Simulated assay, not measured.
Amino acid sequence: MEDDCDFEHSPLSGKFTRGDITVDVEIYRTAGTWDAWRMEVVSISGGCTRWHERFDTEQDAYRAFLAMVDADGLASFAGAKPKLRH
């Protein structure tokens, strides 16, 4: 069912670079709703990290991303295997 949905992307979505590593941060929800925000981080090398947790605000999602970068470094998102965060 979600494949048929349109998504609204947060203005906080976009490229994030630290050092020589760049990822795309995608914060989104179903368009036209007040649904909770979802987040994925996609590495240029093809890895994808998707949070299982949903966020009340787009700012909460972005803060969770920054906390993960501070804790594990941006390289933790550069792997090729999809990961699930919660």
Rank of each mutant, 00 (worst) to 15 (best):
R85H: 09
E40K: 14
I44D: 13
E8C: 03
G47N: 03
E40A: 14
T17E: 07
Q59L: 06
F16Q: 02
L74I: 15
E26Y: 09
Y28W: 14
Y28A: 10
L74Y: 06
A78T: 09
S10E: 00
S13P: 10
E40L: 08
T49I: 04
T22G: 02
V42F: 02
G73C: 10
D72A: 15
F65V: 07
E2L: 12
T57S: 15
G19N: 12
G46C: 07
D6K: 13
S45G: 12
M1F: 09
T57K: 09
I27Q: 02
E26G: 05
I27L: 07
D72C: 14
P82L: 09
V25S: 05
L66G: 01
D6Y: 11
E26R: 15
H9V: 06
R29D: 02
E58L: 00
I21E: 07
T49Q: 03
L12S: 04
M1Y: 07
E53H: 13
E2H: 08
S76Q: 06
K15P: 02
W37I: 05
F77G: 03
G32N: 08
T49E: 00
R63S: 07
F65P: 05
A78L: 03
C48W: 02
V42T: 14
E58S: 11
E58D: 14
K15D: 11
A64N: 06
D20K: 14
V69E: 03
V25L: 11
P11G: 04
L12Q: 11
Q59H: 10
A75Q: 11
